[in-house]
């Protein structure tokens, strides 16, 4: 009886080890989350004033915003899918 119990314990340990190993690569990703607290404040600008050329405007405000829907997103596929779905419902 001791044999199998031992075995399953070993298996558990192995599983634990494995999950630990699996988690390790994630560790560095956690760091930025902790640092987030720091970057909440609006920084003091290092200079008092600047020219219009140094603002956001010269880079142009076009193409910064777009409509919220996407008609290129293969409407046909959706229509086909929808029809399939309606068939399934038997309607």
């Amino acid at each position: 009886m001791a044999g199998p119990a031992q075995g399953s314990n070993d298996a558990k340990k192995a599983a634990v080890n494995e999950s630990k190993n699996g988690e390790q690569p994630l560790a560095p990703e956690k760091k930025p989350a902790a640092q987030l607290e720091e970057d909440d404040e609006f920084e003091d600008f290092p200079v008092e004033d600047w020219t219009e050329e140094e603002t956001q405007i010269p880079s142009g405000n076009t193409h910064l915003w777009e409509e919220s829907w996407d008609d290129d997103d293969t409407n046909e596929d959706f229509a086909v899918q929808l029809r399939e779905e309606l068939k399934k419902l038997g309607k």
Binding site: E43, F45, T55
Partner: peptide, 15 residues
Amino acid sequence: AWESCWSRSQQNKSL
């Protein structure tokens, strides 16, 4: 604020 922001101030722009 966005339009007049100093273009090199990444932190403030993203805020």
